[in-house]
Structures are given as C-alpha cells and as structure tokens.
Simulated assay, not measured.
Amino acid sequence: MGLNKIITKLEQEALTPDEILNDLMEGNNRFTSDNFHSRDYNALKVSATVGQYPKAVILSCVDSRVPVETVFDQGIGDIFVARVAGNFENKDILGSMEYACKVAGSKLVFVMGHESCGAVSAACDGIELGNITHLLSNIKPAVEAVKTEGKRDSTNKKFVHDVVEKNVRLTMERVREKSPILKDMEYKGDIKIIGGVYSLQSGKVELLS
C-alpha cells in the first residue's frame, strides 16, 4: 500500500484482520514516538475520488483530545471512524459498522475508549441534563457492573478507569448481540471485533484481552 494513494480493493482483500490490527498498532507506535509517515495529502485527495476500501471501522468518543486517524497514523481512505460521546453502539452506529464491513469490505471493528472520559465520568456522577440524560443511559450498564472500593463517582479515578474499560467490553458484546451480520462475519473469520483504551498522557492504545 502506497502512502500517496488510497488503499485499493485488491489490497484490502489481501489483508487479514490480524494484519490490519498490527498495522494500526504500528501506527500508534509511530504516533507515540513522533515518527509519522510522510504523506502527500494532495495526491491522496485525488486518489480518493475513485472510491474507498478502508481497512477498519473504529468506534471512538467525540473527545477532541482523541484524534483517531492521527493516533493510528492513518491517511485518507484508510479507516472509517464513528464517534459518539462514550463510544457506545446504537442502531445508526451498528448500521454504519455493517456498511463498513459487509458492503465496503473492512475487516476490523475496533471499539476504543479513552482515559478520563468526560461522558463516563458524567455517567458515574449520575448527571441528568437535556438529551445528555439519554446519552448517558447507554453507559450506565458499565457503571453498575463495576465493583470498587471507595466512592462510586468521578472523584474515584480508579472507578472511572474501570468503567471506561467495562464500557468498551460491554459495547463489544452488544455489537455481537445486536448485529447478526457482524457476529456471523466474526464467526467465519472475515472480521475481528476488538477493544482498547487510549491514554491521554502517553498516547498509547492498550488492547483489552
């Protein structure tokens, strides 16, 4: 795959889910070491007009401190990115993931939470405000599932961290439960569904086992 043209259909088809994951993690290593690939974005823009065959779809939080393509050192046309505060799934995001994988050929579904997530912290605090109340209800199952010592609110940093991880794991489970298409593709080995947590401090993405 060249750095000055977008990935082609043949290149996408030749990749395995594990190779794509390895590519993303190598990109994250370049990000943390400030050793980015050099890209000709004008050439990429022209190349992108013929179509798109991204390698992966990443579900991330809307947090402005988590620039997904940059975190993985990916260029134009390399990945789909779905974003919502708290990086949880809903019907629209599931449909987007199904499009990415079943229609456009992506082979990796990556749910990525992040350190010090404001949406998770708000869910831990039981915040209720306008449409935010409904949004946070999607994170509540993770809050309720985590056991902790001390306070069960955002002042307990370990509690928030554990809820961030649990929220990623529960989101992955619900993707499988709510999307027979993606579950079947994973069962057949056509895709992988994985999760990870991004560190604001180090820039590293830690995969969840």
Rank of each mutant, 00 (worst) to 15 (best):
G130K: 11
D125A: 08
F110H: 10
K45Y: 08
T171P: 02
A122Y: 14
V57Y: 01
S209M: 03
I194W: 06
I132R: 07
R174M: 05
Q52H: 06
V66R: 01
G86F: 13
P17L: 07
E69L: 04
S154N: 01
D40Q: 04
G196S: 06
V62K: 03
V57W: 03
L207W: 08
I193L: 09
A104K: 11
I139G: 06
K158L: 14
G196V: 00
A145K: 13
R83S: 06
N29D: 11
K9R: 15
L200M: 12
D73N: 09
V146C: 12
H134V: 06
E173D: 12
M185T: 01
S179N: 09
G189T: 05
T133C: 10
V62L: 08
S60Q: 04
A145F: 08
L200K: 10
G77Y: 05
L24Y: 05
M25Q: 13
E13W: 05
G95F: 00
I191H: 04
R83W: 07
E26Y: 03
E26L: 02
R83K: 13
I127W: 13
D184M: 03
T49L: 15
K140S: 09
Q52V: 07
N29M: 12
S209A: 08
G130M: 09
M172R: 12
R169Y: 04
N87A: 14
M1D: 08
C101G: 03
S47Q: 13
T8S: 15
S137E: 15
Q74Y: 08
I139W: 14
K151W: 05
T155W: 12
V168Y: 11
D92T: 13
E98I: 00
E26N: 05
Y53Q: 04
K55G: 07
E13K: 14
S64K: 09
S38P: 08
A145I: 12
E69V: 01
A142Y: 10
K157L: 15
I7P: 01
D73L: 01
S116V: 07
C124D: 02
Y187N: 12
V66K: 06
A48V: 03
A100F: 09
H37D: 13
E177M: 14
V205H: 05
C61E: 02
N167R: 02
G189D: 12
G2Q: 15
